[in-house]
């Protein structure tokens, strides 16, 4: 008994020391999961389909950012204003590439099935096929080794919160992802495009009779999800570099986040992503780094046992 108490005590002591550091790290990975999770959840909203190729959208965005930055930066070490500009260019490169591949995916892998009213299982197979195709194409074209990305900024500790260092990378992610998440939230809740997406998510037949172009609305949903996914890939690559298979684990986590928050729900995806990121981060203290995935999925199972529809648990129409 005494041994157990001192075990807990030691870990809580470590937690006290590292709480803010772990928290900041957790929010950082969580916000990336959130961006990817929105792509899953929006596509699910309009098509009732899990877009399993979304992990490869993430990867294409990361590679686009990698090539763009390596070309622009070369061997220089940018600072100040040029850092900011390079990061924006990288996000746009990743996002636009992600949008492009997402739209192509919709055209090639999903729309033909939708027009022929194929059963849902056909979409699943089509998604897995597209995912493998992109994965292996990237492996063949870019090789099977990881590569570091040219750093557009000098990473250093900018300030500390309760002794925990906040690095430049953290700030970049918080600001960039925060802005993009707010824009998407406004886009879906306040604009004509958002109303179209929500109406198609609720009842596509009625929406089309109200004059909403369903094909276009679905394509735009892939554009938005693809942009966030690709941009998230680039932000992720800033930290860890690029690899053809880099999308698999973060995308699986993001999918978990989407389900955790309530699949089809935009704000749920964000909340799910943040919870997952922070939980993973604290797991390192209580158990070990090797258990992060175990704990993440155990939480998913527990939440779904008590709230099968996820934390917010409503469809996309309600999310705004």
């Amino acid at each position: 008994m005494h041994g157990f108490l001192s075990y807990l005590n030691a870990h809580f002591h470590a937690l006290r020391l590292e709480f803010w550091g772990l928290f900041i790290g957790g929010i950082g990975s969580g916000i990336i999961y959130a961006m990817v999770a929105i792509g899953y959840t929006m596509v699910y909203g309009v098509l009732r389909l899990i877009n399993f190729a979304h992990s490869e959208i993430f990867m294409t965005g990361a590679f686009a950012g990698y090539f763009t930055l390596n070309y622009l930066i070369g061997s220089s070490s940018p600072t100040g204003f040029s850092s900011i500009l390079l990061i924006i260019v990288g996000i746009l490169a990743g996002g636009i590439t992600g949008s492009f591949f997402a739209v192509v995916l919709e055209r090639v892998a999903y729309r033909p099935l939708r027009i022929r009213k194929a059963p849902k299982i056909a979409y699943l197979i089509s998604a897995i096929g597209a995912s493998y195709f992109l994965l292996n194409l990237a492996a063949k074209e870019f090789g099977r080794i990881g590569r570091g990305i040219a750093q557009p900024y000098q990473n250093h500790t900018v300030f500390t919160i309760f002794g925990a260092p906040v690095e430049m990378y953290n700030i970049i992610i918080f600001v960039a992802a925060g802005i993009m998440l707010i824009i998407v939230d406004r886009l879906v809740s306040k604009t004509k495009l958002g109303r179209s997406i929500r109406s198609v998510a609720q009842d596509s037949e009625t929406a089309s009779l109200m004059g909403v172009d369903i094909d276009r609305t679905i394509a735009m949903t892939f554009v938005i999800g693809g942009f966030l996914g690709g941009a998230a890939g680039f932000l992720y690559a800033l930290n860890v570099g690029v690899l053809y298979s880099m999308g698999f684990t973060p995308a699986l986590k993001a999918f978990t986040a989407a389900v955790l928050g309530g699949i089809g729900n935009l704000r749920g995806a964000v909340i799910g992503g943040l919870i997952l990121g922070v939980t993973e981060s604290f797991t390192v203290v209580f158990f070990s780094g090797a258990y992060t995935d175990v704990v993440a999925f155990a939480i998913l199972v527990l939440v779904l046992m008590f709230r099968p529809t996820g934390i917010l648990g409503e469809l996309i129409g309600r999310s705004a």
Binding site: K192, L193, R195, R198, S199, D203, G211, V212, R216, M220
Partner: peptide, 25 residues
């Protein structure tokens, strides 16, 4: 559209849907 407000339900029909681009929005 049960999850939309009364106002939004009508507005969906009132919008022209000619240009629903994300950039314009």
């Amino acid at each position: 559209f049960n999850a939309l407000t009364t106002f939004e339900n009508v507005k969906i029909g009132a919008e022209s849907h000619k240009g629903i681009g994300a950039i314009g929005a």
